[in-house]
Design a protein around this nucleic acid. Structure first.
Length: 485
RNA sequence: GGCCCCAUCGUCUAGCCUGGUCUAGGACAUCAGAUUUUCGAUCUGAGAACUGGGGUUCAAAUCCCCAUGGGGUCACCA
């Protein structure tokens, strides 16, 4: 039975890199019909915040990554929030203390920091020198008497620890090179290493799929598992995601969290598809695939070993693919909040109209937030700026618009479903014949007058949505500005 | 700095394990053409890579070594 876990720490929003790790864990669990477990690692009291826990949970749900055990769903190995498991870490740390596999360290953070600095400037590795490992009783009593707080450190044995990483193959580390590390902080909460080992052991995790940044932590965890009397799980260290400058993806690179991409209006299936593509491919030539397809083919051993750079353009491309094939009613529902937020509609709006606007506007867009922007001219009369009026200031433009206005005044409606077919198209056709203009020369002035923009949706889709009166008004308006010049 | 991981078009990658079928395939982006009476969208096409050096071999993108480059880690952060 495969049991994998995603263990975010609620010290910030769900980062794209972490979300990808969660996705790979989720895919692996689904692929092998195992359990995906969510565990909240909130042992950093100073930086953890409840709102982040909530936000992370919301983001995972939005992405569609459901968990079989964890906050909100329970499970046999709970609690799944580390701050509710403190008694367990204390218990296990005392066990290690009794077995002489751990000891109290009285060094203060300031002392440790100073030593690290001097070591670093001397060109030496900034590791702990194990100085409290063999404290005499007198020394210990002196520290205790002075009321010095202590942390608990793990006795790291000098040996080479090797393991078979599922993506990297055999990895070996000389533990003689690493210092004894803290397992319980002086505030009696566990360090990351300890909490991870205890929880992964107790929760019977079979595969630890996590970022490559944990690769060199792994031997520490293996030693801990052994000291605690458990078999270590299998490890799979997946490559990291970088920004365009090849440094670790972070806020500096712009949007870096799932919430931000959500706010920008990417469809969750597009984001999931893109994250899966970062360091993994389904083996065939498809780039666009849904999560179920990914489940069928996914395996950690196929994950690329090298780091990958987050490519906004490719995400946008995928975003546009999903946007154009999304169910139109769903898309309409999803974009309505964005319309409201940009002040384009209020309660009591015409849903059918919004739907046709969304349909007209969606090709070429990659996310929901772009929809109201692209559709703004449907709601607000365009302000013809200097550039547009310049583009319009040819006498052919004036001829076209004058003819158009005249023809529009002679008809009673632009309705696409009128028995006369597409009136607007007919009118344009006639004007084309009359002026012997065609193509861009013919259509661009009309587009500019109607929308105020050089680019936008299909012109013949715009007019019927705008309606006859609005079209007349806008053309009149454009002519007014032109003749005034 | 020590240790560890990694290295194919600008980017994501296929191929590497099990050398020959690779004059290295696909996708995004770029450029060009076509099409839509249209900017965009769409379609078609083009340019674009095995980091370098040594081996091993009849043969190396593929196996080995070194160099270089990138990244990670060495916290009472996770």
């Amino acid at each position: 039975m495969v049991r994998v876990r995603f263990a975010p720490s609620p010290t910030g929003l769900l980062h794209i890199g972490n979300a990808r790790t969660a996705l790979f864990n989720w895919l692996y669990a689904k692929r092998y019909k195992g359990s995906f477990i969510l565990r909240v690692e909130d042992t950093d009291v100073a930086r953890s915040e409840k709102r982040y826990t909530e936000q992370i949970i919301e983001d995972l749900r939005w992405l569609g990554l459901d968990w079989q055990e964890g906050p909100g769903v329970g499970g046999d190995y709970g609690p799944y929030i580390q701050s509710e498991r403190l008694h367990l870490y204390r218990e296990f740390s005392h066990k290690l203390l009794n077995d002489a596999k751990a000891y109290h360290c009285y060094c203060t953070p300031q002392e440790l920091e100073e030593r690290r600095q001097t070591a670093r400037s001397a060109g030496k590795p900034p590791r702990y020198d194990n100085r409290c490992r063999n404290l005499s009783d007198e020394q210990r009593n002196a520290f205790e008497g002075a009321g010095r707080p202590s942390s608990i450190r793990f006795v790291v044995s000098e040996e080479v620890v090797a393991f078979e990483d599922l993506v990297r193959g055999r990895c070996a580390f000389d533990m003689g090179l690493v210092g004894d590390f803290v397992i319980m902080k002086s505030d009696d909460t566990p360090s990351f290493h300890f909490a991870v080992a205890v929880d992964d052991a107790l929760m019977k995790i079979t595969h630890v799929i996590r970022g490559e940044d944990h690769l060199s932590n792994t031997p520490c965890h293996i030693l801990l598992f052994r000291a605690l009397g458990y078999d270590p799980p299998l490890f799979a260290h997946i490559s990291l995601t970088m920004g365009p400058d090849r440094t670790l993806l972070s806020k500096r690179h712009g949007a870096a969290s799932v919430s931000e991409y959500r706010r920008l209006g990417y469809l969750p299936e597009a984001l999931v598809n893109y994250m899966a593509l970062l360091g993994w491919c389904p083996g065939d030539k498809r780039e666009k695939f849904n999560i179920e397809d990914a489940v069928k083919k996914f395996d950690v051993k196929d994950i690329s070993k090298s780091a990958s750079i987050f490519d906004q353009q490719k995400l946008d491309w995928l975003g546009s693919q999903y946007l154009r094939e999304a169910n139109l009613d769903r898309l309409t529902d999803l974009s309505i909040p964005h319309f409201k937020q940009s002040g384009l509609i209020q309660d009591g709006f015409d849903r059918a109209k919004i739907k046709s606007i969304v349909e007209a506007v969606r090709p070429g867009l990659s996310r929901l937030l772009q929809i109201p922007d692209e559709a703004r001219f449907f709601f607000e009369e365009p302000t013809l700026d200097k550039k547009v009026t310049e583009l319009l200031s040819s006498n052919t433009a004036e001829r076209i618009l004058t003819a158009m206005l005249k023809k529009l005044q002679q008809i009673s409606g632009l309705d696409k479903s009128s028995p006369y077919g597409d009136k607007f198209r007919e009118i344009v056709k006639d004007i084309g014949v009359e002026t012997s203009l065609k193509g861009k020369a013919l259509l661009m002035p009309i587009r500019l007058a109607l929308t105020g923009k050089e680019r936008g949706p299909e012109l013949f889709a715009i007019a019927p949505i705008l309606g006859l009166e609005e079209c007349k008004k806008r053309i009149e308006n454009a002519l007014l500005i032109l003749t005034k010049k």
